[in-house]
């Protein structure tokens, strides 16, 4: 059994944390940028996101979630289960200047599951963000 792997993405948003928090915790707003859902900002609340089924990956299009943590306007954690995934999504909001740096961590991918292996990278973040793009550029230069 290998260590579970994690995806980490962050982005600066030119909006205050309270507003970003609203887009993360209002069901209608969430639906506009993520997926249709029945989210409610209540710890322990079970909800679903619905998207296109991918039968080849054993995914029926429903992501079963649960609100694990709700710390307005700093941290939001969801259990994220669907297909073969049993993972946790954590949003962290950090004030930066007049805006917000939003960190996303999607953790718990099983590197031993060949299907899951196709859905993420085992490579560590620094290598992936600095070396990998240049490798793929070298690849693109090959034609």
């Amino acid at each position: 059994m290998s260590e579970p792997a994690t995806i980490e993405v962050d982005q600066f948003l030119a909006h205050p944390p309270a507003k970003v928090w609203r887009a993360l915790t209002d069901s209608d707003l969430l639906a506009r940028w993520l997926m249709p859902n029945d989210f409610r900002p209540v710890p322990g609340h079970s909800f679903t996101f619905r998207t296109t089924p991918r039968p080849g990956q054993g995914f029926d299009g429903v992501v079963h979630c649960e609100v694990l943590e709700l710390d307005e306007p700093r941290r939001l954690r969801w259990a994220w289960r669907g297909g073969r995934l049993d993972t946790v999504v954590t949003w962290t909001l950090v004030p930066e200047g007049r805006g917000t740096r939003l960190f996303l961590e999607h953790a718990g991918f099983d590197p031993d599951d060949p299907v899951q292996r196709r859905t993420f990278t085992l490579l560590d973040g620094g290598w992936r963000s600095h070396v990998w793009p240049r490798l793929t550029q070298a690849l693109a230069d090959l034609g």
Binding site: I7, A14, H15, V20, A23, T119
Partner: peptide
């Protein structure tokens, strides 16, 4: 490589658009 990472990057770009179109409170 990383369809999930691409998924999240695309969604975060969508989040930015939603925020840009949202009035401040």
């Amino acid at each position: 490589l990383g369809p999930y990472e691409r998924f999240w990057r695309a969604r975060l770009a969508g989040l930015r658009e939603v925020l840009d179109g949202l009035p401040d409170e």
